[in-house]
Nucleic acid binder design. Sequence first.
DNA 1: CGCCCCCTTGAAGTGTGTCAAATCGGGTGG
DNA 2: CCACCCGATTTGACACACTTCAAGGGGGCG
Lengths: 242, 242
Amino acid sequence: MSTCVANIPTLEPAFQRLAALAPLGADEIAALVDAAASSQRVPAHREIVAEGQPAVRPSIVLSGWACRVRLFSDGRRQILSLLLPGDLIGMCRQREPLAATSIVALTAVTLCRAPAPREAAAGTGLAEAYLLSGALEEFYLFRHIARIGRLSAYERLLDWMLEVRERLALACLASDDRVPLPLTQEALADALGLTSVHVNRMLQLMRREGVIELTGGMVRLHDIQRLCQLVDYRPGRVRVGQ
Amino acid sequence: MSTCVANIPTLEPAFQRLAALAPLGADEIAALVDAAASSQRVPAHREIVAEGQPAVRPSIVLSGWACRVRLFSDGRRQILSLLLPGDLIGMCRQREPLAATSIVALTAVTLCRAPAPREAAAGTGLAEAYLLSGALEEFYLFRHIARIGRLSAYERLLDWMLEVRERLALACLASDDRVPLPLTQEALADALGLTSVHVNRMLQLMRREGVIELTGGMVRLHDIQRLCQLVDYRPGRVRVGQ
DNA sequence: CGCCCCCTTGAAGTGTGTCAAATCGGGTGG
DNA sequence: CCACCCGATTTGACACACTTCAAGGGGGCG
């Protein structure tokens, strides 16, 4: 489930994700590689899309973590969604931006332009990968709402780590139980609707319980099966590999 | 802002909403009216789309309230999004359903088939209305996350009522300060990530403060300007009327 | 009339926030 | 190489928003 699917060794992780969503033609892969040649670097904490601005041209996250965020006038911050390598930015369906949100780099990020899909058999090709990527994005939003609305702080953290693991695995960026975690505890708090103090307490607790290990920007999850059960985790069923 | 835009007196509220999103051709309106002729009634509490089932054929909510909901194995329930008259069901982009969610009627609901859009000038027609409707749906998801993640119970209720007002106004179903509210306090709690007991307490408080009036399935909001400021409410800017 | 669902209210418990201070670690400049 | 600094993490004590549990009341409907 969490193993890399496409597994074309020379390919960017971001493109592995797209290739995992739908089989790509050689020409499309070439177009991706070509787009990646002229990539754009964004330092951490920099805004990628400012609030209310027209979306950037359609882009792909090549590396690094970004997020969509809502900032309240009194300073409260809520991270609305995560953007990981292989995720798309600015593929929105409508002309004008509706959202009172901006997109911010959480770590250093590299972006490249998203090649326009070409005609292909239904169910294959870049067009299908983009479609599925959008559907997954919506799925993750639903999961985020359920997480924040009904899970305890402890459960939110677990559920969130399981999702990150699932998503990074699509791009071959997470092994079965080891998940990169380059965020500050404050960013985590902003994503989960908590305070950084409380996030810290829960992480300590989980470590003491032997549920997770935290080392150098990595989490190791122990007994994933049990953890999934604990938070009633339902993996997104992307029909992979065919 | 919250006045009815399309205002074709004889038209269903649901269709007023679509007409407000994009100017429709006479033939498209005819197609809608025709679809409404064979509508489907769903009683309250009945499932419309079961979890994991393939989506129904694309449909329009003609009347009543429904919601997308996530049910946890231990009985916890979280309402993920609201479906109001004029909203679309099953317009998803991908073949298979990804979500571990179902769609349930909160009140009695009537549905009709969503006519396939026909070619039209960009920015007009049913196709555009469907597009914008989808974009709005995403926008409301973002708002829901920010609401649940960062607002207090009191603020969540206000913010949510302001959103319902905005959305119903699109279909000419809410006047400036009077908003239909046909949900039980328990359903409200499930939407806002609270308990029904606490929802009740906050509603009592708001009534005592003179912020709202509750009468017969209607809320009356007093001093909306101030309420918007209180929760930093950002209306969805649908460029209406042209 | 009596049942059931929903709303209402109280008292007590607890999960999470707030405030504050100490420690850690990595980078920078002297 | 050390001194310093800064942001991030860690920990404690206390406050409070929200939940839990429980009981009572009101209204519609068979």
